[in-house]
Design a protein around this nucleic acid. Structure first.
Lengths: 342, 342
DNA sequence: AGCTTGCCCGAAAACCTTTTCGGTCATTTT
DNA sequence: AAAATGACCGAAAAGGTTTTCGGGCAAGCT
């Protein structure tokens, strides 16, 4: 194990150890290590040397206790597979700067009791702030009022409009998707969405519908709502082809749905993208890159969203903070499944 | 925001506030809140009441400073997508008991510099232990010796045999997979693996080969090594069908490969599972459940692995610890892609 | 030479909790 | 009634760091 032999009892070096070895007081040692002024260059060197020799590592607990801030934040999620919370965590780590702030990741697994438990633990650990990541874009209940650290809600907005929430702009994303298909020369666009109970599905549909209308195009058939699954994509695509054989593009509610649609199209002998263009949502790489052809998809820029959330939290920690729901732009990642018509 | 109005300046309640409100000393308040004896029931009630009134939350930093342990552990990963580290995190949370121990999740993104940075930060925060999750099952360099907290390596073993590592038993998993196919009445089993550079691939092949041999079966063709992708699965399956049309089962190196294999089989008109059984590896639900038919796969029990790692870390924190590489059993999740031959 | 100025350094307080040890008070025993 | 017992509570120290403030000392100035 990494622990050096015999160091079990050797308690880790403290600042007074360093000071003693350097022949100075703890105050001077502290100042030297923190690049405070009013300490002679030579003295500073002695202290740094001693610290290195003892492989001294300042006790963040003590520092946090004194400073009243711990340099940690909590990331509370309900997103089992980490599909959304992990990119957000990465973005947050980026924004905080590596090592400056450490992140407690807690998964409540959709359980309110467990969530309260985690929040309590985080408050007790004196986190400087909290990022709450929902599992869908539907509004979620705000945290208890007892939490008196800043909270930023990411991906899913808080139900309380006084909270700050940062969410992907799904309406605009739907619009962008349709505009991309139109730019590829498509005019008979069907929309196979996901679960109607999800606001993400409805928002994307709203944006897509608006874009169609603005372009003066009729939607091909009704929007099909179902589930976020490949099976639904396969089934729905079959229906669309039966009723509207003239379709030349299918916008899908998720990459999983799109995979199902691709399956059915191939079975029915429709070439993608030559006969029909297909677009997914989420840009889940394992699905989009593995598809044949590779799948054009809307990326929600979750990492950027995480960075934004972290920055917002940072602002909220020392200054006063924003309120309300802020949206983040999505972007389209173009792959082989959409292409201009010749 | 969750912070109550005007509480910005109102520093969070401390134990002395509680004590003052309850009309006792801090010592008594502490004892009352921690269920120590030698405190009158009535007094305890007064203290609890006061604590509730102030929504008092004990400062873990102070407690940790005094106790010499922080009640936190670090989970250091390089696994970008969280495919492996998240289930392990969940298992660890389970084993530690919700709220008892909080987990710092750090992603080094495969960068040694960043890893050192994170380790330094974690040591500074006085984590009680460290779980290191690799991104593949290949051995990875041990952490620097300067880390004097217990470390458990999960998924990827440490190169240092004196460290404790907990990894999935890929050899046994390969064996189990073949035995399952044999139990389904298959005798002409091809093996399309993943990247030869991964020990996971080689180990599974070793187990599978051994199982075939023990059953007195000849492998169908050479093991095909390639990449962990759908594209490779599609291509390799084509080759196998060309050269060995008699094949009645394909064992795949990953679920992605298996998805590609399924694709090609359908194109070539081979029914799954009636003509050919297909098995994947990893049990990545988005791939296995979406497939048609649903994909039988080997699950590496990562959550259980996380629990084991957490338990091992727990043991290592107070007692002396184990060393060496321990393996965890995998299990087969049977779905539609494998079935007994009639 | 005596005074001021400015540079370094050290003592001590503060952060908050837990635990130990000694003290107070009421109750019981002789 | 005096002493002993036991139950309950409070004072104080400890844990490691940062910051403030005051003191010592050398150099420069009159």
């Amino acid at each position: 194990m990494a622990r050096p032999t015999g160091s079990r009892g050797a308690r880790t070096a403290t600042l007074s150890d360093v000071a003693k070895l350097a022949g100075v007081s703890v105050a001077t040692a502290s100042k030297a290590l923190n690049n405070r002024n009013h300490v002679h260059a030579q003295t500073r060197a002695r202290v740094l040397d001693a610290a290195a020799q003892l492989s001294f590592s300042p006790n963040s607990l003590a520092r946090g206790l004194l400073a009243g801030r711990s340099g940690t934040v909590g990331l509370l999620t309900s997103d089992l597979v980490g599909r959304f919370s992990l990119p957000i965590l990465m973005g947050a780590e980026d924004a905080f700067g590596a090592g400056q702030v450490s992140v407690f990741l807690c998964d409540a697994r959709g359980d309110a009791i467990r969530e309260r438990h985690h929040v309590q633990a985080l408050v007790s650990r004196r986190v400087d702030g909290l990022i709450v990541v929902g599992s869908s874009t539907d509004p979620r209940p705000a945290l208890a009022d007892a939490v008196d650290v800043p909270v930023v809600y990411a991906y899913a907005p808080s139900e309380d409009p006084d909270d700050l929430s940062i969410v992907p702009d799904n309406v605009e994303a739907g619009r962008m998707a349709v505009e991309h298909l139109i730019a590829c020369g498509r005019t008979r666009i069907a929309h196979i969405s996901g679960d109607r109970d999800y606001s993400a599905a409805r928002d994307r549909v709203a944006g897509a519908t608006a874009a169609l209308e603005e372009a003066g195009l009729e939607p091909v058939g009704q929007v099909s709502y179902g589930t976020w699954s490949e099976g639904w994509g396969r089934a729905a695509a079959g229906l669309v082809l039966d009723r509207h054989p003239e379709v030349d593009a299918v916008l899908c509610g998720s990459d999983q749905v799109a995979r199902g649609v691709l399956d059915t199209l191939r079975e029915r002998g429709r070439a993608v993208p030559d006969d029909v263009a297909v677009m997914g949502f989420d840009n889940w790489e394992v699905l989009t890159v593995g598809a044949r052809p590779q799948l054009t998809s809307v990326d929600m820029n979750l990492e950027e969203l995480g960075r934004a959330a972290a920055r917002a939290l940072f602002d909220a920690i020392d200054d006063e903070h924003d309120r309300g729901v802020q949206t983040m732009q999505c972007r389209i990642v173009i792959r082989g499944s959409t292409a201009p018509l010749n």
